[in-house]
């Protein structure tokens, strides 16, 4: 049944290009206007309509004008709520999309920034063919809502179609619109679960051995924030300002040189997975590392930003 419906839908989309006009990707910002907002009664709305008919018949049959008036008021309010539902979407703008970072297989957080001239409530956005919806409200101005997109493989991934919908205010009507932003998100490769450690890099420059943090290295001027117990009181007494004993901090002494070329005999995806794992380990241990990739050698660095740069480079390998 569902299969048949889907086939019917696809056939209709092939035949009637107007149906698909707003299904093609389009650049940001996307503003919802009347030509792309659809509205139908919900199941509850249909049931409520039947109830109104029953009430109308009852009022007419018993020639009870007060009941008839009440029914008319309720019916008119239901009709007016349709306009309110439409207005909940009309004029809404999808201004920007910010993608998070995720490895293939993990959900990727995508933050949508909506803009509106007047406050809106009870909007919902969901991915095409995904029943889970994120609810959000937009005050006059801007609001962000985060969706999670399933990822499968590394590399650029086009955003799926988004459905923005609302049943505000009474749940009698559902207005919806399709958003298909021309935007891609980058999915990082998934690291392998386990494997060998990187080979000890040859020619590692051994820095002078760094001491654990209780060996006095030198004296320097006091700077704001220095702990008082590090102040060299005796030495300070002979000086104008305070002197502070500077201790050697334990430092990253190791530097990993990760190199695509040093992993022969593996197929490219396995190489990428291994490099990704090493990158993760290096970041977790606080090491410094460099990464050589074909066509994209990346220098030495450490920290989250460096990690992200290396992972993105891995993701983009052919």
């Amino acid at each position: 049944m569902r299969q048949a419906l889907r086939r019917l839908q696809q056939a209709a989309e092939r035949r009637l290009p107007a149906l698909t006009r707003y299904r093609r990707p389009e650049p940001l910002p996307i503003e919802l206007h009347r030509r792309r907002i659809y509205i139908v009664p919900t199941g509850f709305g249909l049931g409520f309509g039947v109830l109104l008919l029953v009430m109308l018949l009852g009022g007419l049959n018993y020639a009870n004008n007060a009941a008839l008036l009440l029914t008319c008021v309720l019916g008119a309010a239901a009709a007016a709520s349709m306009l309110a539902t439409f207005r909940a979407l009309h004029g809404l703008r999808l201004g920007a999309i910010q993608a998070g970072q995720a490895m293939a297989g993990d959900p990727l957080a995508v933050t949508l920034a909506f803009e509106s001239a007047h406050p809106r409530e009870a909007l919902r956005v969901s991915l095409d063919r995904d029943p889970a919806a994120a609810a959000f409200a937009v005050p006059a101005g801007r609001a962000e809502v985060t969706l999670r997109i399933a990822t499968q493989r590394r590399g650029w991934q086009a955003l799926p179609r988004l459905r923005v919908w609302s049943t505000w205010p009474l749940g009698l009507f559902r207005a919806w619109s399709w958003l298909h932003p021309q935007q891609q998100v980058l999915v990082w490769p998934r690291p392998e679960v386990s494997g060998p450690a990187p080979a000890a890099p040859d020619g590692t420059r051994q820095r002078p051995r760094l001491h654990h943090g209780d060996d006095l290295a030198t004296l320097r001027d006091y700077r704001g924030g220095d702990p008082l117990r590090h102040v060299a009181w005796k030495a300070s007494a002979r000086h104008h300002g305070l002197l502070v004993k500077d201790f050697e901090q334990p430092q990253v002494l190791q530097e990993w040189r990760l190199d695509w070329r040093e992993l022969p005999g593996l197929d490219p995806e396995a190489r990428i997975a291994r490099l990704a794992r090493w990158l993760g380990e290096a970041r977790a241990r606080g090491l410094r590392w460099s990464l050589w990739l074909p066509g994209d050698p990346i220098g030495t660095g450490s920290g989250q930003a460096h990690y992200a740069r290396c992972m993105s480079a891995l993701a983009l390998l052919p």
Binding site: L56, L57, Y62, A76, A77, A79
Partner: peptide, 28 residues
């Protein structure tokens, strides 16, 4: 507010919904 906004339409509907001359089923 919603009820107030819908009053004009409600009043028109009230005036114009055709009344029944005879009840469809038993009178009360």
């Amino acid at each position: 507010t919603l009820l107030g906004v819908s009053l004009p339409l409600a009043a028109l509907a009230f005036l114009l919904v055709p009344r029944l001359d005879t009840p469809l089923w038993g009178a009360p």
